[in-house]
Amino acid sequence: MMEPIIKIENFTFYYPDSQAAALAGINLAIRPGEFVGLTGPTGAGKTTLTLALNGIIPNFQGGRLAGRVTVAGRDTATTPCARLAGIIGSVFQDPEAQLVAETVEDELAFGLENLAVPREEMRARITMALEMVAITGLRHRPLSQLSGGQKQKVAIAAAAALQPRILVLDEPTSELDPRSSLEIVNLLQRFNRDYGMTIILIEQKVSLLAPLVPRMVCLHQGRIVADAAPRQVLNQDQLVAELGLEIPPVTTLFRLLRRAGAYHGDLPLEVDQGCRELERLLGPAGTGAFPCRRQ
């Protein structure tokens, strides 16, 4: 068993002037190379948790806290944010506000310059990061001309250029259309699979998350209420109802069928799995072809 790269121990946090804990007694360990989905209703503490990981809490955002957050062996409370920048990369919700430069190249250079990377290596790293995100063609474009999805890819490339071992993304697709959202999600999957990057994805859309991540953590009122494989989480009817989770429609269908006693297998999370189960239930559609066209 590998040592966790992220360790949160009994972490509690109050924003200034707030009586309610934003996070209460959080314990979480994430091992290198994991792809973790973090979900929960508005105000559950998802964003607060990401800010605690990249050191913004407590270095930039003040408040009362207890417990400890360790990232790659460093205590975030005593390590300056800037020192954590090369270890944990962050991407935020608003594609526009998180970008600081004028052109794509300068945006990627910003972090590298801050960390005093020599000029030649900087060029090489920018080239590589652009390739990883498949936006090499945008290198010299002004950011103002890019779409929301492209801007979000630039933000990811800018984080990737720092070659962090962990990437934490706070609802990166919430302002994008379905096509761009899917592109971002596929990109993250590739980062995790091909580069072994540890990824923590905060996401409201469980239907996007469930087929994607092996591990799903649910927050509710500042506490972790579930930490398991998505299928196991979605199996808990009461939890799903209490948190008001948006679950994949195909999963809903089979939950209904299961409740009616017509289905006894595992809950499918994706349409393709659903089609196979449906075929088992109803028999082939007749044409002999696989009932769903693969997308």
């Binding site: 429609p249 449906l278 769903c292 066209r293």
Partner: peptide
């Protein structure tokens, strides 16, 4: 072409509908 998928219910039922089932 516009990057949209029909609702999952339609994707699931497509083949059975085509077959009249």
């Amino acid at each position: 072409a516009t990057g949209l998928l029909p609702p999952q219910a339609i994707q699931l039922a497509r083949a059975y509908q085509a077959a009249g089932l």
